[in-house]
């Protein structure tokens, strides 16, 4: 018996990295998982892997910055499984070359808009797409992935501002939808070794700041994801949980 038996959970950006770790663990805990990723083939591959491991998953190619695409995502899930219990707003741009690591003057207005479109408008649109159903059912679990950089300020402005916006959205939405037993929380990971192209030696920089002195891996976040998707967290809402080995302390 899993912690998430029967729950239908959408993970945006679920094909790779942290999103993939969430998807795999949710499936292990009995959830039916929707891999909503802009990379359709990668989403199919992760869904197939979950299927081979005995879990249930579907791939729904989704561009979270596109209104129609997010509506179609919710519709596809409802047609397939008839319900949506959880949404993890994990899709985001955070790696080079999409993100310039530089000062404010080095970031173009176009890049700013693109980052906000995915990292902020994306969670907004995905919440908007699932909320009518969650409200009608009177239950739902939403997790927005923020970032430890919101607390430390250690990254470039376009990215950190987008992740601060996610915390703000989490707080306001939690108050708006509490009456419907929908909880809205945020997870703020530290720098996580989630890029398959870069080995762990590239992620050593943040280790000295941590209480637990090692590289953070996508699997380190899965437990918090399961907790916030399960009924164990039903009286917790509006909160941001930092999962970074104890670097930023909130």
């Amino acid at each position: 018996m899993g912690k998430l038996d029967e729950r239908v959970i959408i993970v945006t950006g679920g094909a790779q990295g942290i999103g993939r770790a969430f998807s795999m663990r949710f499936a292990e805990e009995g959830a039916r998982v929707v891999i909503a990723d802009i990379n359709g083939p990668a989403a199919e591959k992760t869904a197939a892997e979950i299927g081979e491991a005995g879990g249930e998953a579907i791939a729904v190619p989704t561009d979270v910055s596109d209104h129609e695409s997010t509506e179609a995502m919710a519709q596809a899930v409802l047609e397939k499984w008839g319900r949506i219990d959880g949404l993890v707003n994990n899709a985001a741009v955070f790696q080079r070359p999409q993100i310039t690591r530089g000062t404010v003057e080095e970031i173009t207005a176009e890049e700013w808009d693109r980052v906000m479109a995915v990292n902020v408008r994306g969670p907004f649109l995905c919440c908007r797409a699932v909320l009518p159903h969650m409200k009608a059912r009177g239950y739902g679990k939403i997790v927005n992935i923020s970032s430890g950089t919101f607390f430390s300020g250690r990254s470039s402005t376009q990215y950190v501002a987008s992740k601060g916006a996610v915390v703000g959205m989490t707080r306001t939405l939690s108050r708006e939808v509490g009456d419907f037993n929908i909880t809205v929380n945020s997870i703020a990971p530290g720098s996580t070794a989630s890029d398959p192209e870069r080995d762990e030696s590239n992620y050593q920089g943040r280790v000295p700041d941590r209480s637990i002195k090692r590289v953070e891996r996508p699997e380190d976040l899965a437990g918090a994801g399961v907790f916030l998707m399960s009924s164990d967290s039903d009286f917790m809402t509006g909160q941001t949980m930092i999962v970074d080995g104890g670097a930023a302390l909130n």
Binding site: F227, M236, Q239, M241, D244
Partner: peptide
């Protein structure tokens, strides 16, 4: 499940405090 979490304070109060 929480082995990479330390030093944090979790408000569990039905969403009074948003922390």
């Amino acid at each position: 499940e929480s082995d990479f979490i330390s030093g944090q304070t979790l408000a569990v109060d039905g969403g009074v405090v948003v922390h």
